[in-house]
Every structure is written in structure tokens, then in C-alpha cells.
């Protein structure tokens, strides 16, 4: 299983900070599609993704136990 984290407006839209999703073997892009379809998160297509706290690309493949975080455009500072 994979812990999938949501922040900012994504968290509000999903209604949860994190979800357990079986994403092993999926690409980041494929997981985004699942989240898009299951939770109606259309904005997921344009956010960054982190795997285990490092930025990842859409074609990176998710391993068992990886923590995935969807990172909306940041606004710190």
C-alpha cells in the first residue's frame, strides 16, 4: 500500500490529508489519473508530485511503501 498525501486546496477537495491507495507499479501519471477519476480532482493534472519527499516526474514508477505527495504550486515566503 501507499500513503498518498494532499495539501492546500487538494486537501480541502479530497476531504482528507492522506489516503491509503495501492499504487505499486503505477507511474505517477497513472496515479494522478486514478485520483482524478475517483475524487474528481481535475486540478491534479497540473500539480507537482513528490515520492518520499523528493520531486518526481510523471513517468517515475511507484514502489511498495512509497509515500506520495501531491504538491500544488507553493506560496511560502
Amino acid at each position: 500500500m501507499n500513503n498518498v498525501l494532499f495539501f492546500a486546496h487538494l486537501k480541502d477537495e479530497v476531504g482528507a490529508e492522506s489516503l491509503q491507495i495501492e499504487a505499486k507499479g503505477k507511474s505517477v501519471l497513472a496515479l494522478k489519473q486514478v485520483v482524478h477519476d475517483t475524487y474528481g480532482l481535475s486540478s491534479i493534472d497540473s500539480v507537482m508530485t513528490a515520492i518520499n519527499e523528493e520531486f518526481a516526474e510523471d513517468d517515475d514508477v511507484i514502489q511498495e511503501g512509497d509515500t506520495i505527495a501531491f504538491i500544488p504550486p507553493v506560496s511560502g515566503g
Binding site: A8, A69, S75, G76
Partner: peptide, 17 residues
């Protein structure tokens, strides 16, 4: 840096990105 701010105004609120 993954930090986000939500602005609150008199007539609403919004996550800024």
C-alpha cells in the same frame, strides 16, 4: 519549498499558489 498560504478576506478565503 512545499509551503502554502490561505488568504482570508472579509468576503471569503482561498489557497494561494
Amino acid at each position: 519549498v512545499p509551503i502554502w498560504k490561505k488568504e482570508h478576506w472579509e468576503d471569503g478565503q482561498e489557497w494561494i499558489g
